[in-house]
Write a protein that binds this DNA or RNA. Structure first.
Lengths: 199, 199
DNA sequence: ACCTGAACACCGTTCAAGT
DNA sequence: ACCTGAACACCGTTCAAGT
């Protein structure tokens, strides 16, 4: 039925799929466009029709990562109303993602990338907006700056715990426990009382 | 005076020096052994006499990074006795290092490196031991587990804040402010009362 | 519009050979 | 002991050409 290559029309998606699993299994450094093309069964120059260069493909992976993490965070709070439970579930979702997809996380939060494509920035903004929603409704007269501080402190803690686990400076079980400790500390703070409905 | 190459005897150090500045200015990906050799004025195969492979050189850079950060932390607490002041100074030293040498930090806390050379692990252990000392003397009957939790939470927060700044998700000034907020939150916690002499 | 094949300028790594 | 030069097997990227 097909004397035409089966990738007709979806080579782009096939390359992204393959790239995602290479990154997951072997890290970003192991990702080669030529090997990707080989795996998918096209010539080494074929990817160029869909991605301007290697970095463009990496940017697409980063965007997909942000979108997936965003939906994980949404799923974590879905239907939950207790503030502590919401925070704990979001924290674990965030850290689990960052550990299981550590290489992808590196791609998403790349050091030194002065500016990134709009698609990536937009996906990143969506994530932080979703984190804000996950913090629950604002109390009357909430200080937006303080709430932002709380949000970034939350993100930084989770990012940091995940980084230490991914770098094997912390066992995974210790990381899990640390997430709980961090949440307890954060929710017990004055800042939480002023920004989050921690009752 | 020198018909012999001027690197006689210290090519190794010259390569490490050059490598460190390339990493600092252009990131790890931009580091090529062949270009390093060119810059230093030796043949492309010469580095092989001093480093088994590219990763071995990267490991040496990571070790040097841990040692430098350790001494920065020591300098930060040197002669200071007030607990809050000590913590704040260490936190800023840590975050400043992690931002200014973000690429080196990536090398030090490499994701997915299951095991690293002893020299790197030892240097990393020295850093965390120094962080522990920086937390000040133990109160009588200190819960060591809780103190460890506090230390790792401290490290994770700083690591996370630095990561967000390095990834340009946070302006540097906001990161600086966040360090202060994180310290206030941490030192005001129950955990701090039980583990650190926060008076 | 999408893909191929040849070409170019790079890599890391190996190894026999030089001093 | 330390370094060189040639060689090998890879890269990313470009571009004319095919369909």
């Amino acid at each position: 039925m097909s004397d035409r290559p089966f990738h007709h029309g979806n080579l782009r998606a096939a390359l992204l799929d393959e790239a995602m699993s290479v990154v997951r299994e072997s890290g970003v450094d192991a990702l080669s466009l030529r090997e990707l093309a080989r795996r998918v069964g096209v010539s080494h120059a074929a990817p160029r029709s869909h991605f301007a260069d290697r970095q463009a493909l990496l940017d697409d992976l980063a965007e997909a990562g942000f979108r997936r993490l965003t939906s994980e965070v949404r799923r974590a709070v879905d239907g939950r109303h207790d503030v502590r439970e919401r925070f704990l579930r979001v924290a674990h979702a965030y850290v689990d993602f960052a550990i299981d997809d550590a290489a992808l996380m590196d791609l998403m939060f790349q050091t030194g990338a002065a500016s990134r494509p709009d698609a990536v920035s937009d996906a990143a903004r969506d994530l932080f907006d979703t984190l804000d929603s996950a913090m629950g409704p604002r109390v009357a007269g909430t200080d937006e700056g303080a709430r932002d501080t709380f949000k970034m402190l939350f993100a930084a803690s989770m990012q940091g715990i995940a980084a230490l686990v991914a770098a094997h400076r912390l066992a995974r079980a210790d990381g899990d426990r640390l997430v709980g400790d961090a949440m307890e500390m954060m929710l017990g703070s004055d800042l939480a009382a002023r920004t989050v409905n921690a009752r």
